[in-house]
Amino acid sequence: MRSFTYERPSTPAEAAAAVAAKPNAKFIAGGTNLLDLMKLQIETPAHLVDVNGLNLDTVEPTPEGGLRIGALVRNTDLAADARVRRDYGVLSRALLAGASGQLRNKATTAGNLLQRTRCPYFYDTAQACNKRQPGSGCPALDGVSRQLAVIGGSDACIATHPGDMAVAMRVLDATVETVDAAGAARKIPVAEFHRLPGDTPEADTTLRPGELITAVTLPKPVAGTHIYRKVRDRASYAYALVSVAAILGKDGRGHVAFGGVAPRPWRVEAAEADLPKGAKAVTDRVFAGAKPTEDNAYKLKLAERTLTAALTQARA
């Protein structure tokens, strides 16, 4: 970890201004990912702006009948919120499928969206990695890639977004609210929040420098069975090989997003019309153009079968 300076502003606009004002400054909330990355010098911020005191930690109803989740609402609290459990079960389940109880107590809603990939080459500073060190190369392409993306990647990067919460947010059509250094607010649909790597895999999201997430809003609830099915190599405390976030009716109609397969939660809305035809019809369209490696080609079959499991559950 490199030495850094630290401050605790008192308003979101001040926080955004503080990060914009200094080169190589970052926000810190729960720190569950950033601190690890700093210890390994994968992230080397010179200045940290602690946003924990910004009072962004409440869940409020919106006039549209949805929920506005403060950026600092802890994963544990969000998963346990009675309204979330009642109306957005997929979100509660996704949160509880992630990390461990201790980490969920610290991790925040905004921070969860910003967690970085778990690609092994990103984590080994002796190795090349275009995301960590732009232009250095991507060993994952011909290296160990069992966990990595089958779709949405590029010749520069096949890292996945490792999270669960964002996959549920995607199927819920959530919106990320931000404020920038000038105090201007912006709304980013979660579908547009995470970037595909292209030639610039170093940028995970479409946030601008200094832009601070203040909340995530959910539209009014969607009826149906809320399912989050996370498939992994062990029963707990592991990243998804494939996950399915779905809201499904008994007739199979509904919405579905996939995790663990791409640099961002992966959803193809147009394919959802095929849900009543069964999983394969949907995954054939969702994963059209997939470019798996030899190591991770199984994810295509797994995605189909995991969706089958979700459909079976919804019909039961």
Binding site: R118, Y121, Y123, D124, P139, V144, D233, R234
Partner: peptide, 20 residues
């Protein structure tokens, strides 16, 4: 190709957890 064990931490090298 590069000659090392790539999953060299306990997030990458999975051992059973209690739930297993």
């Amino acid at each position: 190709k590069r000659g090392f064990f790539a999953n060299h931490d306990l997030a990458g090298y999975e051992v059973p957890v209690h739930a297993d």
